[in-house]
Amino acid sequence: MKFSNEDVLEILRLLDATKYDELHLETERFNLTLRRNRDSGDWSQETKALSAPNVLHASLGVPSGVISAAPAAPAASPDSGKAGLIEIRAHLPGTFYRASKPGAPPFVEIGSSVEEDTVVGIIETMKLMNPVHAPERGEIAEICCDNAQFTEKDAVLMRIKPGPA
């Protein structure tokens, strides 16, 4: 038997007529908590599916695609950078792109001069393109992340040598 939202509503109808404000139900497959707000009388629920996924181990006979390379990891500590260089870190996890679209020239190369707020790359997160900005004026000294590589939040993407270009 599967447990449905109609079942929850039915339990609620029974509960509504009682003095109880809370119900916990736990089986091997799921748990459910129903709670009545004493002020408003409104009910809310917390529920969790507990069954382990039943994953079929079948070969699809098709190339499984390119397994993405290990994500660029956040640097161990803030001072692990090179002396005198400023790090540009990922403000979001996602896929890092060095150009505005495939085939377009990269935003910056090593040696490019940047101003504060110059766009140096894009991170695609949840289907949205988020620009990565240079934190201050300077020159790109290092590029630490490949194009189209997945990066964790706070991973070092580039390093800038600060100062007037």
Binding site: L50, S51, P53, N54, V55, A58, L60, S64, G65, S68
Partner: peptide, 13 residues
């Protein structure tokens, strides 16, 4: 967890 079974069709991308 809810499906009767699950089959992997490739990486996250």
């Amino acid at each position: 967890r809810l499906a009767d079974s699950t089959i992997c069709i490739g990486p996250a991308n």
